[in-house]
Design a protein around this nucleic acid. Structure first.
Length: 106
DNA sequence: GTCGTGACTAGCC
DNA sequence: CGGCTAGCCACGA
């Protein structure tokens, strides 16, 4: 009976979590990695996964650095900032304002 | 099976 | 406060 093989890769899990992020909130690469249950600094792989998935089907623009910096974006950091601002996130100097207030924890 | 890359993080001066 | 280095993980060729 168990012919249901879920070939879910690490990257796929990252996308799933990104979709879980509510509008107006953001998260960090570290938190995502931590939710995946892996030990160590896997946040590096998280960025790589999102970078390859430049599809807008995933709100990956809601993911920022743990330091509150915007980080990067496959379409351009400028676009990322604009999207976040539209969601209600305040950004100044490429940094998140009230970072802890808009930070979403799983 | 091995090597290199990348949207990161923390520590140090 | 600001900038730089080293370390770690997953994926592709």
């Amino acid at each position: 009976m168990g012919s249901r093989v879920k070939r879910i890769s690490f990257s796929d899990k990252v996308y799933a979590l990104c979709k879980k992020i509510p509008k107006g909130k953001i998260t960090t690469y570290k938190i995502i990695g931590r939710e995946l249950g892996r030990r160590g600094q896997i946040y590096r792989a998280v960025g790589v996964a999102l970078n390859k998935n430049k599809s807008k089907s995933v709100p990956c623009h809601r993911v920022v650095k743990s330091t509150g910096n915007i980080g990067g974006f496959a379409r351009g950091v400028n676009v990322k900032i604009k999207l976040l601002k539209k969601e209600g996130i305040m950004i100044k100097n490429r940094k998140i304002v009230n970072f802890e207030k808009v930070l979403f924890r799983f």
